[in-house]
Design a protein around this nucleic acid. Sequence first.
DNA 1: CTTCTGTTAATGTCTATACATAATCGCCCC
DNA 2: GGGGCGATTATGTATAGACATTAACAGAAG
Lengths: 259, 259
Amino acid sequence: MNNDTSAKKQPPGMKHLHQRIRDDIESRIMSGQWPPGHRVPFEHQLMAEYGCSRMTVNKVLSTLATNGLITRRRRAGSVVAEPSTQRAVLEIQDFALEAARAGTVYRFQILHRTIEPIDAAAAQRTGLPAGTRMLSVTTLHLMDGVPGAYEQRLINLDTVPEAATEHFANDPPGTWLLRRVPWTDAEHVLRAVNADAELARRLQMKTGAACLVLERRTWQAGAFVTEARITYPGDRHHLIGRFSPAAQGPAGGSAAVSP
Amino acid sequence: MNNDTSAKKQPPGMKHLHQRIRDDIESRIMSGQWPPGHRVPFEHQLMAEYGCSRMTVNKVLSTLATNGLITRRRRAGSVVAEPSTQRAVLEIQDFALEAARAGTVYRFQILHRTIEPIDAAAAQRTGLPAGTRMLSVTTLHLMDGVPGAYEQRLINLDTVPEAATEHFANDPPGTWLLRRVPWTDAEHVLRAVNADAELARRLQMKTGAACLVLERRTWQAGAFVTEARITYPGDRHHLIGRFSPAAQGPAGGSAAVSP
DNA sequence: CTTCTGTTAATGTCTATACATAATCGCCCC
DNA sequence: GGGGCGATTATGTATAGACATTAACAGAAG
């Protein structure tokens, strides 16, 4: 235990206590000094070492555990986790925000807008019953007048009935939905495809050119909300993600869609 | 308020108290009942409502804040966060693990292995000084004998000197590195490219076919470790990610590379 | 009306303690 | 030796209180 119980009141030039403990443990793990499988000191050892209460070290170790750096088991204690998988966090931003950050002028065109029953293939992908009425919108996104993405979107009118009368004059469908409809689950699929004639014409590229396709389907408490298939020209856009296993943020990293 | 202050000792048929509070708040946010910008009750209101201590509600709200569902500010209280960006968490798995899960036989071939000074383009990408000695390895990954990925990797021998004598007889370079060298930062770039003649031959596809390219660069406390460029046939592989904003896991979701 | 300042309310961190839970360890008995 | 069983131990959850920090707010001074 600490030599003075009043030591808690003075953070002389440093951050917070739990942060200092966190940094110490993290640096030992990430430097390789504590390899995977290595025993992390018990909570009572750490509270003796840092002269603090168990709640403080418990919070630190719990955070490290939810971040995947250590594995905790009752009675057995904590060990440094195996780095089983690598994670990339892609943050798909709003087109307008992305353009503003890049210093370009954003514009969009609604190419197509219909309300019709879901087709068989989409019903299969989304799990919706045949005959469900969907709003189908095709949007072209332009950065400084140059096509940057081609978006084909289906919106479930059972979940979002107010979309039936929306014509997306001010905001593109993705932004409009994001601001209006919460979602609880999302599924993303990333693929590479060769542009067909229609895509090539819309995105001003040669037929057969490689395109990056991002499909996103979102649900809200089990109810399907929307499916978006966004096609980026392979030569003009790519997705960038950064990740740090020790980051304390919501997803452990940040990322952005970049030209 | 609770009808009985001694209720804390009896979780009759439910989970834990903090989890119940969490679920309540999360469902109100994600159902849209509390839209972005809506005020979340103050901590003392919640402790009155649930008949618990402030530490308990504080932990709940802090967790929701780090997960990005709410924004907290001193004196002003907490509000439901704006859903500014959508996140996709891609979990890039070990090839062998992925194959085992898919029920296929995994095999790999080292096509090329040299040690040479870094070239100008790679020096620019990685920020390494010209002349740094790098191990360059090209690997073909096969699932049931079919090429599934083509990997070009550079390993910094200053950071990983033991790689100089490694010939990857048992494990492919990615797996070998992951088990041996910790990393603290990673950067990912996803692109779509048309296969050139060499790639098409290796991956048994037509020249010009679209390929998904994942580039990953990793650092360890500022020191560059490795760069991997993994090319997947666009028609055979895609990346799948799932994400739930309320998930409590390390990155708020899970994902996998799938055929 | 503006700016400065002191109050105050809400969150952030930490302590000391208590009991619950789970799993390992060692012991006993067969 | 092996199998069951209780004791031990580390973590998981929760409490009640304390002080620090910050920023919104109101009132005073110019």
